[in-house]
Design a protein around this nucleic acid. Structure first.
Lengths: 106, 106
DNA sequence: AAGTTATGCAACTATTAGGTTGCTAATATA
DNA sequence: TATATTAGCAACCTAATAGTTGCATAACTT
């Protein structure tokens, strides 16, 4: 499909998925698909799809118990995002003023 | 359209846009659209679209000089991602084992 | 002035994404 | 056993994305 960091970024790039992920993170216990969809204004199937995307990115773990599927968040993959961003921290103070300076010098 | 963090995350969720952004960050000077498209295997228009997405996210600044449009990267919006992730750092060590424990206790 | 270069804009195609509904299977409960 | 509940799967719709080509325009060059 695509590389890991892309999967993770795409997973959290969707606002509804960020909401679902957040709900799972702060939940005191694992939540079933039905429990999750009760908290959001989309259908159960819609939630299932989002969960699948999050699971593929490693951000959600699922364990079946009887007919239910319990989901928990796993924040660890977010480390990869932090690592990706870290390289660019050194450029945070490179303002766009530099572009103007460069162009003026031409 | 959508909120800022979503724009930023969507912008960098695409691998080609990350490549373009990276090329602009490490470039010693501002690059024109044509110069950028010379480095990638997509058309100039394709690059223009990606640049527009990056610009909308605040990750690229553009200044026109004559008929050319010079682009520079601006890493600052990435701070917002770091801030978003920061909240979840406290959960990095909450492993999926907790899910198993929870289910066993039921 | 004529030609070349840099770019934007519009239209089009193909693929992916977000979301839905309907149906089936498996598990729990009465 | 009959019924409720939980959920997966498949099909479908619509909107958004990534990419293309063609054309028009503005700005340099000769």
């Amino acid at each position: 499909m695509q590389d890991n960091i892309t999967k993770i970024l795409k997973a959290i790039a969707d606002p509804k998925r960020r909401e679902i992920f957040h709900a799972l993170v702060i939940a005191s216990s694992a939540l079933s698909i039905t429990q999750i969809s009760g908290q959001f204004d989309i259908s159960r199937q819609g939630v299932t799809k989002h969960i699948k995307t999050l699971e593929t990115a490693g951000l959600v773990g699922i364990t079946s118990k009887g007919r239910e599927r319990f989901c928990t968040a796993d924040a660890k993959p977010l480390k990869q995002i932090t690592e990706w961003v870290r390289f660019y921290e050194q450029f945070w103070d490179t303002t766009l003023k530099d572009l103007g300076d460069y162009l003026d010098s031409k």
